[in-house]
């Protein structure tokens, strides 16, 4: 087997990976989004958002808090077993999660919250 053949095979493999990445890009939608964009995406879309905590409410099983960025404000729900950090008003956080609809309005069900 010539060295050239191995290199060609390597390039094919790398290109296949790139095509796969392009294919799943639409499905994943893990772009860092802004709140205005998130308010209009479909339910179950995965999102990644950076914002400031403006209010926090606690229930027996959930934390419900509002997060704002330059484009607006959105409600975020975090189940207590998923919560990574103690949150306070004014904290800057990064949220990864899925969009859910509650009473016709988009909110985020957080899967990962990282405090800056």
């Amino acid at each position: 087997m010539q060295e050239r053949t191995i290199l060609k095979l390597a390039m094919v493999v790398a290109l296949s990976g790139t095509l796969l990445l392009l294919f799943i890009n639409d499905k994943m939608s893990l772009d860092e989004s802004n709140i205005e964009a998130i308010k209009s995406v479909e339910e179950e879309t995965s999102v990644n958002l950076k914002g400031r905590v403006v209010s926090i409410k606690e229930t027996p099983g959930l934390y419900i808090f509002n997060v704002e960025d330059d484009t607006g404000e959105i409600r975020v729900v975090a189940f207590k077993q998923n919560k990574n950090e103690e949150l306070h008003r004014g904290d800057i956080i990064n949220i990864e999660g899925k969009v859910k609809k509650y009473k016709g309005v988009n909110e985020i069900e957080a899967e990962l919250i990282v405090l800056y």
Binding site: A10, M11, V12, V13, A14, L15, S16, G17, T18, L20, L21, I24
Partner: peptide, 10 residues
């Protein structure tokens, strides 16, 4: 898998 393919090729 996509990342591993690209990295493996490189």
């Amino acid at each position: 898998v996509a990342v591993m393919l690209i990295a493996g090729g490189l």
